[in-house]
Amino acid sequence: MKNSILLLSALCILASCSTSEYDLEKSVYLPDDEFSSLPAYTEWGYNTFGAFYERKVFIYNDNEVPAKVIHTNDLARFVLKGGLAPADYNDYYYNGYNYYTSSMSLSFDLPGFHPLTYKDLVQLNDTVIDLTAPGLNVMAVIGSDTVDMDIFNGRLQFKRAQHLFVDNNPVKVILSGYFGFQALVNGEPISLSYGRFDVGIDEYDFARY
């Protein structure tokens, strides 16, 4: 009887609530207070990232795995993959849809870092990487074009790296931090600014070969 009353009342009161699945793989978008086009900086493994790329927004989408760490040829790379959207897109209608002008990925070399498994990524906790360091490459792929960024100012900061346990089982490493740089592309200075990421890397997002 109690359940029946609860059922009827809940149907009336909660009729406007939506239903959906979400889990740790899904991106959770919380808008930044200052730049609502960008996700807020978080440390929850929300699988989001965003940055201003000149007057556009480089941001995650729901079709691509937002971040991977690839270790090959004795070099580890941190890769963010999403799309390039107009800066004035509508946040909600954009979120989860493909209103990009083009796809985009950004790859940062992590020289001297040799993780054996995804669990080793926690060593990046509180690490700042100077992107102007010799031998450190940052490469973007925009649409089908590969763009070498000749960086003259910028850094990548892993502010926090955490083991994530769910019900006492290790499932991911959460990497959260900031990035931004100025670079020369075809002799012209460009900027990528206010970048932030909060991504979970599990065994499938880590590749070593």
Partner: peptide
């Protein structure tokens, strides 16, 4: 770890 949307439309 909640999922929210940025604007406050009723749905």
């Amino acid at each position: 770890r909640a999922d929210v949307v940025p604007y406050n439309y009723y749905y």
